[in-house]
């Protein structure tokens, strides 16, 4: 009995339900560039502690703008940010001390060596110089640390950027498109680093991307943003559940109008093309009803099939509307 309770508690613990502290919380965060419409519109994020939070959206959705506000580079037009349970406005430097950022392309002085680049951040931040070689080792750049950073490959540059973020040993990493422009090998390396940081050291990681596949592979939580608006937030499991619930059912028919009439009783009826209709049945029972009513009405249909909605499709679907 005790064992079962313990297991249950452990399970809750893993799911972050008992220990759910929010590291980043935004309230109606809004930003607009001068004279333009809102780049970020009343966004509410909450990033739980110990999560890898994937911040997902197509290009130009407002991801970078949001991250720049989280870094204090842009001032929100309205709304507020809380990090580590403190108001960002009031406790900015205390918050920055516990977080590290890598925003878009890494900051890189091309005329200096990789090590000197890290040394700079170390000096500027007032961090322990002993960590320089440690973090370079961490991102597998020890062998290349004395080469000029300008000659690094894209992946090495990105890893150097991550090394810079690792220096202060922060509790939170905010990474903006860290795998952008990398080849699959480079992406894999970065992903390994990120997952390691999370699993081994319990760091919270907030990572933005426009690639759903990337997010799917490593994240525990997902937030989707589109046109500056938040449209979904939840654990990766919840996203998968949403995915299941919007199962699509398509009917290919020769008598479009008649079929349309018969099926008008069902929810979310949609014409896909000239002879295909789409409905969203709640369950198998309803799926049967659809077919039955078509047969009863004598509608000539050639195919009735389920569309398996992958996350990719869901993402496109969600961002289309």
């Amino acid at each position: 009995m005790f064992c079962i309770v313990l297991k249950f508690v452990l399970c809750l613990y893993r799911e972050n339900i008992l220990t759910m502290t929010t590291i980043i919380k935004t309230n109606d965060l809004t930003f607009h560039f001068h004279g333009k419409q809102n780049a970020v519109n009343e966004l509410n994020l909450s990033v739980p502690e110990g999560s890898i939070y994937g911040f997902l959206g197509p290009n130009g959705a407002g991801k970078s703008t949001t991250i720049r506000m989280l870094a204090g580079l842009l001032r929100p037009a309205s709304g507020s940010i809380e990090m580590f349970d403190k108001s960002f406005k009031k406790a900015k430097s205390a918050i920055l001390r516990r977080s590290a950022y890598m925003i878009e392309e890494p900051t890189l002085y091309k005329h200096l060596t990789g090590r000197q680049n890290i040394e700079l951040i170390c000096k500027s931040g007032g961090y322990d110089a002993k960590r320089i070689d440690e973090v370079l080792d961490w991102v597998h750049l020890s062998d290349d640390k004395n080469r000029k950073a300008g000659n690094y490959s894209m992946g090495m540059k990105q890893r150097l950027g991550i090394a810079g973020a690792l220096l202060p040993d922060p509790d939170l990493f905010v990474l903006d498109e860290p795998t952008n422009g990398l080849d699959p090998q480079g992406m894999y390396e970065i992903r390994e680093l990120i997952v390691d940081l999370n699993k081994k050291y319990g760091k919270t990681i907030f990572i933005s991307s426009h690639l759903l596949g990337e997010i799917e592979k490593m994240c525990t939580h997902v937030g989707i943003i589109h046109h500056g608006k938040g449209i979904f937030e939840g654990s990766i499991q919840e996203l998968a559940d949403v995915n299941k619930s919007v199962k699509l059912f398509r009917i290919e028919t020769l008598q479009m109008e008649k079929a349309n009439e018969v099926l008008s009783a069902f929810e979310n009826l949609k014409k896909v093309d000239e002879n295909t209709l789409e409905v969203q049945p709640k369950d198998k029972e309803q799926q049967y009803q659809i077919i039955a009513s078509l047969v009863n009405a004598g509608v000539e249909f050639t195919q009735a099939y389920e569309v398996k909605n992958s996350l990719e499709e869901l993402f496109i679907q969600v961002t289309e509307n």
């Binding site: 870094a71 430097s93 890598m102 890494p106």
Partner: peptide, 22 residues
């Protein structure tokens, strides 16, 4: 120009110091 060319402001201004010190 060294800073502009290296995209450096965004990195250094997220270090926990007042901006004026930079």
């Amino acid at each position: 120009q060294i800073e502009h060319r290296s995209n450096a402001f965004k990195k250094f201004l997220t270090l926990p110091h007042p901006r004026g010190s930079f």
